[in-house]
Design a protein around this nucleic acid. Structure first.
Length: 370
DNA sequence: TAAGCGTGGTC
DNA sequence: TGACCAAGCTT
């Protein structure tokens, strides 16, 4: 079978990779809330660095679809980075609830405060300056520098890794192969429109060079792709084997007063679900210490009723949470508070906690009929 | 360097 | 239907 000879990166006899990719990008522009229109871009308008940063942090390990409503909510509530810097942390955590990876929200607030206090409310316009801020790593610093400030920064995320690993048929497994791939991205990134190039690489990975069943026939790199020439693009990127997920077990306690208030408390600032709101729970351990569960209830004298199990899968373990509920009189509590069921939606409750509460109170979080 | 860190969509 | 995985960062 006749194969097309791969072109070099900047072959003299045709457009470069970057030129072909940008031509594809101009034909397939995706409208996204944090992007500016191609017309505005052509007129030399730059996007708002605050919006680019906010969207990039939200998009870390998170799909565009999941981010959209959160991005709209944050932008409406805190239109500028100085607004976010001045906001109460609890409000920010509550607004982030449900999006996951809550360290991002804690760092988002810290970063906004640093920009407001140390940079006069203006984002640094270099990769290095951005990289020094909380929650901004290799990817985000390069992405904001390129997209918001037109810097020639090499942007590599999961999409770009997939595109590069296929284009060059890189057999070495991730994450060890990252430096090799990064060098390729550096080589490809143009001085003209580096931000569009970065977004184009990510769009290509998201829409054409997909993990399963890539649409190679539509790819601007189809004549150069070594993985396609080798007839098995899906084989890339090669990844290190992942560990199996352990199971942890615990119990959660939903105490309800006759007035319809639920006992809540705040988790410690660090670690899993750090700084978020929860209903009281036991520790989550490999084995349930059978028989003594109720002894760990916040109000041990209450009449606790088992009402089912919630299974929730975190990144590195599966949680089986036995749910107990009790009708209790409103008593003073050391490290918690009583929250009306109707206002639970304003709390910084992660999804697993909402599931626990709904298991005990099926009508919680139900929209009131009008 | 490897492990810890959420959630929802997809096939 | 369960395994995979999405615009990663921190320690």
């Amino acid at each position: 079978m006749l194969q097309t000879l791969p072109k070099t990166t900047n072959s003299a006899d045709g457009p470069t990779h970057a030129e072909r990719l940008l031509a594809w990008y101009d034909r397939h522009h995706r409208e996204l809330p944090w992007r500016i229109s191609p017309t505005a871009a052509k007129a030399g308008i730059r996007p708002d660095p605050y919006r680019i940063w906010l969207s990039e942090v939200m998009l870390q390990q998170t799909t565009v679809q999941a981010v959209k409503p959160y991005f709209a909510k944050f932008l409406e509530r805190w239109p500028k980075v100085t607004d976010l810097a001045a906001a109460p942390s609890d409000d920010v955590m509550a607004a982030w609830a449900g999006l996951g990876y809550y360290a991002r929200a804690r760092n988002l607030k810290k970063c906004a405060e640093a920009v407001a206090a140390d940079h006069g409310g203006v984002f640094p316009d270099t990769e290095k300056g951005l990289r020094a801020l909380p929650g901004i790593g290799d990817y985000t610093s390069a992405a904001v520098a390129a997209i918001a400030f037109n810097r020639q920064s090499a942007v590599m995320d999961g999409n770009v890794e997939r595109v590069i690993s296929r284009l060059y048929a890189i057999d070495a497994p991730l994450p060890g192969s990252k430096p090799v791939m990064k060098a390729k991205v550096v080589e490809l990134t143009p001085s003209d429109r580096p931000g569009d190039f970065a977004q184009a690489m990510m769009d290509l990975g998201a829409t054409i060079c997909t993990p399963k069943r890539p649409a190679c026939a539509l790819c601007p790199f189809r004549d150069d792709c070594l993985a396609l020439a080798g007839d098995d693009p899906e084989r890339f990127p090669v990844k290190a084997a992942k560990k199996e997920k352990p199971v942890r077990q615990g119990a959660a306690f939903v105490a309800v007063t006759p007035d319809g208030e639920v006992l809540l408390r705040k988790r410690i600032e660090t670690g899993l679900l750090g700084g978020m709101t929860e209903v009281p729970t036991t520790a989550w351990t490999a084995r349930l210490d059978g028989g003594t569960t109720i002894d760990h209830a916040p109000i041990p004298s209450a009449d606790w009723q088992a009402c089912g199990t919630v299974i929730h899968v975190f990144t590195h373990f599966e949680l089986r949470l036995a749910i107990f509920r009790a009708r209790v009189t409103r008593v003073a509590v050391d490290n918690g508070w009583w929250e009306p069921v109707e206002s639970l939606e304003n709390q910084a409750l992660p999804t697993v906690m909402k599931k626990a509460i709904v298991q005990a109170i099926p009508l919680a979080f139900a929209k009131a009929p009008n």
